[in-house]
Write a protein that binds this DNA or RNA. Structure first.
Lengths: 212, 212
DNA sequence: ATTGAATTTGACCAATCGGTCAAAAGAACG
DNA sequence: CGTTCTTTTGACCGATTGGTCAAATTCAAT
């Protein structure tokens, strides 16, 4: 009672309860990802997302209070999973193999979740208005920790001397490029999966760069 | 006479004649670059561009027939200058130094014209609807030619064996990353110019990668 | 100063934007 | 079956979108 707005009760706060809620939220987020990743937040429209999801516009707003809420939901789940591979770097492991595994995992992400990569790219291009605080706190801290690990490896002579931060930037740039600039890559390369050749290329390159 | 629309006569077709036309077209393109590079074509609005340029919206449309015309004008001048450095690769030069010079020049472009880089990134992210034909023809051809040069160098043993196309992709990815993801880079790095350290880093990395 | 062209703008337009709401339609359960 | 809660939607809202247009202003050259 009290004040029940038109919004789904279980949808906004707490987890979705019924299976139809789960299904439709999934449908909407999938469609929103498709549209946001291509046109960015401002360039995307609710009508587009609604059409893509096969739902009516008011129905979208029954599950999410606003366009921004959809975007935030996507960014949140993205950030959670996006940087996990970096956290998986094991200081005890073999340095070169650890980094190569990270590169491989990151390239897999670009191949399997290119839209998520583009969603992130769009957000950054627009000045990261919604995730800047996160970048300056959590991400920055995570990078700093990883740099300690890398510096340790180089100090032990198990890794060629490298600027650790820019090494990380390099990995991000090289792997995400194949997702974010996929159109350009395939336009230049023609048909065929670019990721296989890219994987081999990156493996060789990083091996040369980092072998002591 | 005949049919003079409200559009500037010398502005649409041919080069701008009066200095006030030159100045205002410049003002508009500058503002349009600012807005388009941040929000992409769909996310940008004429009111935003008008405000940025300090002109009224109808005045914008006096110099350009449409929003799309502004975007096209920007993309065209961009494409002309963007790939010149690649054309400057000299098959007679020292392979490693030629490539390093290209990397340096590309990084300078990212530092001095980050908005142009982001404009391009936005266009690609949206599926390159306006420049795909160019990518599939001119760019593809240029890359193919460059690959011949690189393959020649490796065949002569003056360059470590590399997949030439993916080497080019790597250069693009690494240099443009500092322009397109500038917000993220500075968020992680804190204040200070990232380009100096990036330049040193890339120099070392590519030297290791490509020294036979 | 006057004229004729170039430039600027306020008012306006149809279409689309994100979002609201009451009412209809569908499920769930006795 | 009827009832209650959930889900869906058509109609609608004010604001903003890209773009038009006639009138007003400024400019350049006599």
């Amino acid at each position: 009672m009290t004040e029940t707005s038109a919004t789904a009760q279980g949808a906004t706060a707490g987890k979705p309860r019924t299976r139809i809620q789960r299904r439709n939220r999934e449908l909407i987020l999938e469609a929103a990802l498709q549209v946001f990743s291509q046109y960015g937040f401002r360039g995307a429209t609710l009508d587009q997302i609604a059409a893509e999801a096969g739902l009516s516009k008011p129905n979208l707003l029954y599950y999410f209070p606003s366009k921004e809420a959809m975007h935030e939901a996507l960014l949140q789940t993205l950030l959670e999973t996006w940087l996990d591979p970096l956290r998986a770097l094991d200081p005890q492991g073999a340095p070169l193999e650890e980094i190569l595994a990270y590169v491989r995992r990151k390239l897999e992400l670009a191949r399997d979740y290119p839209r998520e990569s583009r969603l992130f790219a769009n957000e950054i291009l627009q000045g990261a208005p919604r995730i800047l605080p996160y970048l300056e706190s959590d991400l920055r801290e995570l990078v700093a920790q990883t740099c300690v690990i890398i510096r340790g490896w180089t100090a032990e002579g198990r890794l060629a001397p490298v600027d650790p931060v820019h090494l990380i930037f390099s990995i991000w740039a090289l792997t995400q490029h194949y997702a974010d600039f996929e159109v350009q890559v395939t336009a230049v390369l023609g048909e065929g999966d670019p990721f296989e050749a890219a994987g081999a290329h990156l493996d060789v390159m990083f091996r040369r760069m980092l072998t002591p």
